[in-house]
Design a protein around this nucleic acid. Structure first.
Length: 498
RNA sequence: GGUCCUGUGGCCGAGUGGCUAGGCAGAGCUCUGCAAAAGCUCCUACAGCGGUUCGAAUCCGCUCGGGACCUCCA
């Protein structure tokens, strides 16, 4: 089975076919760096990191573009016409750029912790003001935008009338009908500049107190939110590219507006496949600023938050996210995170065991087992091909764990599996656990620490030989308090895990 | 109000017609000086009510519950 991708545009799974053989253009909406990233933000970046990794594994040369929104948006369009970033900067007495830098750094730090590969290009909105202005001019020239008092708005109704004929109606992505929307759109203040309620800003006039501002043909101002993604995706991926990703909450209006802008400028819908990850919820409700229920990533990693029973390692968060299919909601909870923590440890421990297995048998003595193992391993590719079903991949890997551990602990005959099957399993699990899912061992082994522990292990061995269990247990228990767990193996050796 | 999604065992979650994932927790057993780890076994669910079907968690309808978007939001 070849790769199947669920396309939000068609609402069904489709066989993935890149526009140019061997190449894939992937655009993912990045963060607005006016605040610190929270758990919810981790989801798209982990999700699309795996998409990126898997496409690369399939042999595609992927250009992964993920923007940084550093120009700020309106708090409430039309009403406050105020740049989020400059507002906060004033409050904190910081330069906007300083604020942007701070949160960009924190974001990059969090991405690194989560083991997300950095994108090929990470363009910033402020670095592409010229491109955005050019695009707006083009839209005005074509008659789909109009300037009022130094601001420019996209004429949604005119666009819809003309482009519906071309199969690109406004609402095609989110399944909305413009007429319905015009009736139900909330009545916001200060909408008088717009011809229609559904129109959205391409450029906003900057009031005097506004710090972030650029010169434009319409006066000093700043770009609207949606235009940056259209400008940057076009610049780096072309008029039409393969995959556009982002959170489900961006589907409307953000992505819908992107399609409209790009369609006017490039005469086609920008992306072939639209992928949207679902939300992370907390007590069943979406985690988001508006709900005041966010847990920042730094808080999650440190455990410093009233809702957290403990700190959670970034790898635990990654694993937690991957255990669910990306299109399902994922509910946060200490119990769930703790289950992930233990599960991840079990998985990684088994994987480490597998790497060290020494098998010499040329032939598997247990044919049934061998076939079962091969089936589980071969299904891994199928599951990934089925719209990146990481949950199923992990389930199969867990099914391999008892076999691996039984071989290690000699609970299974040494020659149950052949050296070829073991090698295949080693190769497959490396590929899936490390390369595709991007999971890694939380506990790096430090040779000095290892040496110290070995000394203690030897002292304990001596004590045990003398049946001095008080001393041996003391060593074991005190190490356990430090998080070092000793394990007496069957063959008399002692291993430990951190 | 409009559009759409969803309701799975103590918890988190796969799953689109028959083969009833997986993780965590819980119980028993094996191993062990005692533990831990590991292994084995058990606990077997699909909101409710109808319908379609030889057969439904899976399709259809209704009821009840939860949520997302329609405003910045991953």
């Amino acid at each position: 089975m070849s790769l199947q991708v669920y396309n939000s545009l068609t609402r069904k799974k489709e066989t993935f076919q890149s526009i140019t053989p061997g190449l894939v253009g992937l655009y993912v909406c990045g963060p607005t760096v006016s605040g610190e990233s929270h758990l919810g933000h981790a989801r798209p970046y982990v999700t699309f990191d795996v998409v990126y990794r898997y496409l690369s594994h399939l042999g595609y040369k992927v250009r992964y573009v993920r923007n940084i929104t550093d120009a700020g948006h309106f708090e409430e369009e039309g009403r406050e016409a105020e740049d989020k970033i400059s507002k906060k900067a004033t409050l904190e007495k910081l330069e906007p750029m300083e604020l942007v830098q701070k949160y960009t750094n924190l974001y990059h730090w969090a991405m690194l912790q989560l083991n997300n590969i950095e994108p090929s290009i990470e363009p910033t909105a402020t670095g592409h003001i010229v491109e955005q202005i050019n695009m707006i001019e083009k839209i005005i020239a074509d008659g789909y935008a109009y300037a009022v008092n130094g601001s420019v708005y996209f004429d949604v109704e005119k666009y819809n009338t003309d482009f519906s004929k071309k199969g690109l109606p406004y609402g095609m992505l989110s399944g909305r009908v413009l007429e319905d929307m015009l009736e139900t759109t909330r009545d916001l203040d200060g909408q008088d500049e717009k011809r229609n309620k559904g129109d959205f800003a391409l450029w906003k006039n900057a009031p005097p107190e506004h710090i972030m501002r650029w010169k434009s043909p319409w006066g000093e101002g700043f770009p609207g939110w949606h235009i940056e993604c259209s400008a940057m995706s076009t610049k780096y991926l072309g008029d039409e590219f393969d995959i556009h990703g982002g959170g489900m909450d961006l589907q409307f209006p953000h992505h819908e507006c992107e399609i409209a802008q790009s369609a006017v400028c490039n005469h086609k819908s920008p992306a072939r496949y639209w992928m949207h990850n679902n939300m992370i919820t907390i007590n069943g409700r979406k985690m988001g600023k508006s709900y005041n229920n966010v847990i920042k990533l730094s808080e999650l990693f440190s455990g410093q938050h009233p809702l957290l029973a403990q700190a959670y390692h970034p790898m635990v968060i990654r694993f937690f996210i991957l255990q669910t299919h990306y299109r399902s909601t994922l509910d946060f909870g200490n119990e769930a995170l703790q289950a992930s923590e233990k599960g991840l440890k079990r998985l990684i421990d088994a994987y480490e065991n597998l790497k060290k297995l020494e098998v010499r048998s040329q032939k598997s003595e247990d044919i049934v087992l061998e076939e079962h193992i091969l089936k589980l391993l071969n299904e891994l590719d199928e599951f990934m091909n089925d719209d990146f079903n990481t949950a199923k991949v992990l389930a199969n890997i867990f099914e391999l764990v008892p076999t691996i551990n039984s071989l290690k602990h000699k609970q299974l005959a040494e020659d149950a599996l052949s050296i070829d099957v073991i090698a295949f399993m080693q190769q497959k699990l490396k590929l899936f656990i490390e390369d595709i899912l991007g999971l890694k061992n939380i506990h790096a082994t430090d040779s000095k620490v290892d040496g110290v522990i070995q000394i203690l292990i030897n002292l304990r061995k001596e004590a045990k030989a003398k049946k001095d269990f008080v001393t041996s247990d003391k060593i074991r228990n005190e190490l356990a308090v430090l998080g070092v767990q000793l394990k007496d193996e069957k063959d008399g050796t002692v291993s430990y895990s951190l």
